[in-house]
Simulated scan of single mutants.
Amino acid sequence: MNGFDWSNFAVISLASLLVLALLQAATYLIGRRIRRYNVVDVSWGLGFVLVALIAAVLGEGDGLRRWLIFVLVAIWGLRLTWHMYAKSAGKGEDPRYVAMLERAGGDSPTTVIRKIFATQGLSQWFVSLPLQVSAVVGATSGLGTVVATIGVALWAVGLVFESVGDHQLRQFKADPSNSGKIMDSGLWAWTRHPNYFGDFCVWWGLWLISASVWPGVLTVLSPLAMTYFLVYTTGARLLEKSMSRRPGYPEYQQRTSYFLPRPPKR
């Protein structure tokens, strides 16, 4: 692959694996101490920020693209980290993890590490491959510049959907008169999961920036994996299972798009 530095990529990739392993180990110890493992959600965005920083510092590819990606990932990841911390602080365990560990046969340390923390760390490493590959190749030019610009624009759309959606839901829940009601206004009238749709756009945008230079396009499995997580596993599908039992949610499902935004049905 012309212009691809395999040795530099190996250094970035191994350093990323090591840092993510340390992050997940620390998160596990914190979760064990406070007796809830949903703290792993707080380290999700932070892990990507650390990988982007490693890629920016250790990468020997185009400096402008390396630091652009770091800034974009840092804005997204640090916002998400703070949001997840504020959302879970003082709360009990997330029912998703309770159900997951029950299906796995218990909450022994080995099971918890294998099913939650090791899985998340490996997922972070795989999804972040576009960041790692992009850091070791040369400058973007020609059509690649157009592709990268589209990627930045898509990232911006995703950040708006995710941050605005989270803000609207937080404001809705803060109003006591909305207790027991279903949030169905603002972005939540266009999609039942604006935050997950925002994540989707962010990672496809970052992939486009990486794909603006060969062989970044080959990391397409990373945003596809993130899409699968968001839509079918730990994201929207799992949340729908619990929400569908709430009064008013089936009607909300009928008039509002599942994932991709569209005008609500009357």
Rank of each mutant, 00 (worst) to 15 (best):
L208T: 06
W204F: 15
F161Q: 12
G235R: 04
Y252P: 00
E162F: 05
S179D: 10
H193V: 15
G180D: 07
W125G: 01
G205S: 09
D166N: 12
S185M: 01
Q124G: 07
G144L: 13
K173D: 08
V137S: 14
S177V: 12
G198N: 09
W188Y: 03
L129I: 15
P223S: 13
I150P: 10
S185F: 01
V147I: 15
S177D: 11
L206I: 13
S222C: 12
T227W: 12
I182E: 04
G121P: 07
L260C: 06
I182A: 03
A225E: 14
G151I: 03
F197T: 06
V217N: 02
R255V: 00
W190H: 01
F259G: 00
W204Q: 07
V213T: 11
T256Q: 14
S212I: 07
W203S: 09
L169K: 04
L187K: 08
L224A: 09
F126M: 14
S134Y: 02
F172Y: 09
M183W: 00
A211F: 13
S134K: 08
V217T: 03
V133R: 07
V127D: 05
H193P: 13
F259A: 01
L206C: 10
T219M: 15
R246G: 03
L218Q: 02
G142I: 12
F229D: 02
R255H: 02
W188G: 01
T191N: 06
E251F: 03
S128E: 02
K173S: 12
L239S: 01
G121T: 06
S134M: 11
I209H: 06
A211S: 14
M183H: 07
L238F: 06
I150D: 08
T234E: 11
Y228E: 07
V146E: 11
A225I: 15
